[in-house]
Computed example of a mutant assay.
Amino acid sequence: MAQQVQAVIAPGKNEPVRVETIVVPDPGPGEAVVKIQACGVCHTDLHYKQGGIGDDFPFLLGHEAAGVVESVGEGVTDVAPGDFVILNWRAVCGQCRACRRGRPWYCFNTHNAKQKMTLLDGTELTPALGIGAFAEKTLVAAGQCTKVDPEVSPAVAGLLGCGVMAGIGAAINTGQVGRGDSVAVIGCGGVGDAAIAGARLAGAAKIIAVDIDDRKLEMAKTMGATHTVNSRTSDLVGEVRALTGGHGADVVIDAVGRPETYRQAFYARDLAGTVVLVGVPNPDMMLELPLLDVFGRGGSLKSAWYGDCLPSRDFPMLVDLHLQGRLNLGAFVTETIGIADVEEAFQRMRDGEVLRSVMVF
């Protein structure tokens, strides 16, 4: 039987979000209903509200979530009612050419729930990243549910569903940071700090945090940065080179996603080094680089797509590292909020006051 629950809706472009009653249907084949316990407030949710991702309003916001499976539909075997799960927005198909080649983190046919959640008047909702977890309960594809150790705090676990995984994965999976490497991370918000934490986990010897805000640089030190550069007052490329023997960093991660920061990342890396783009550009942004420099410097220019993660592999591993005290996921939680506090959380995000606000039910 369909359920009515409270949820946060973005009704139209740049309109204030509001709490509405929505209808969550019973799970169909391959689907699951999850009772949400916590959900992070991510920049992607703000992009949805601003119309930067699409115009399929109204949006059901929220996607960095953890909770308990309440019910499952026909054919679901990987999760069962009562399982504690982190939600992911890339349920792999297992059949596409990437999956068949043993690279499911590149799956070209990821899927979401087929049924739609609605407002009380029947208006269909578009769930953010196919999840929509600023809600007491949500409907997802069962493959979007990843079981992890229930000993972890939901407020911490949910952040692996997007931003923290994107940053850690950009360092470990995409950038393939190794022991003794030098790493520079441009942009020290939630994703950038997660990349710093990932580089530290991977054994990087030198981790250079770059930002224009000294407050964020101080926070980056607590995540594992060994050096900091304020690029508002210093030459980013020159400083990174000076800190790496004049050569440039082995891996440079752009967690901002602007043409100017990407160019800085390109020239701040060592010859044959790696650039990883994990910051999300706007659709109208264009990049210009001398093709001879691209050829002559060698190395790799990569994009981190969800940190090239495989949720079934990476989420349980990172939760275990957190529970062992080797990865402080709690450091990313600046504050906890209620369901009515999302608009204010967006403002604090704009002002650079938080790494993550987390809605707790």
Rank of each mutant, 00 (worst) to 15 (best):
A242L: 11
G224A: 04
E124Q: 12
P150N: 00
A66C: 09
K137Q: 13
H247G: 05
A249Y: 06
M286R: 13
P290R: 09
A225D: 10
S231Y: 09
V275R: 00
E15T: 02
N230H: 07
F361N: 13
V17P: 13
G175L: 06
G198P: 13
R356G: 14
C99A: 11
L323I: 07
G257M: 02
L310E: 12
Y267C: 01
D254E: 04
A340Y: 04
G73P: 10
T110W: 12
A155R: 10
G82R: 02
D26Q: 13
V79A: 07
Y306I: 06
G130K: 04
F332S: 12
M165Q: 15
D56Q: 14
S357V: 09
A98I: 01
M219N: 14
G67D: 09
D235E: 09
C309P: 03
S234F: 05
V319W: 02
A32W: 02
A171E: 03
C309Q: 10
R297V: 01
L139N: 04
G132H: 01
G51R: 00
L277T: 03
L301T: 00
H47Y: 11
I186A: 13
Q264I: 01
A170T: 06
A133K: 04
G299M: 01
L61R: 13
W89N: 13
A268W: 06
L291P: 13
R313W: 08
F84G: 03
A268T: 06
P150I: 00
L46D: 11
R97K: 09
T244N: 14
R100W: 04
S357Q: 06
E124M: 07
H63N: 10
M349A: 12
C96I: 08
R326M: 11
V275G: 03
G73S: 03
R297Y: 02
G246W: 09
F266R: 03
K221P: 15
A220T: 10
K137V: 02
R348G: 11
T261S: 12
D250R: 11
C145Y: 00
V33F: 07
K137S: 09
K49V: 09
L329M: 11
D320A: 13
A265Q: 01
A197M: 11
G132N: 06
G257S: 03
V342F: 06
V8I: 14
Q144R: 00
F84V: 00
Y48L: 09
G102V: 06
G161S: 10
R348A: 10
V210Q: 11
I212D: 07
L236H: 04
A209V: 07
G298K: 01
V92T: 15
I9H: 07
G338T: 08
N109S: 15
D308I: 02
L301P: 01
C188Y: 04
Y267T: 05
T233V: 12
V76R: 01
F134S: 08
Q50S: 05
V229D: 06
G51M: 04
Q176V: 08
V140F: 03
E20D: 15
M219D: 14
G279S: 02
G352D: 08
M223N: 07
D56R: 14
A65P: 14
G73M: 02
T123S: 08
G67Q: 08
D181N: 15
P154F: 00
V276K: 01
T222F: 07
V360F: 01
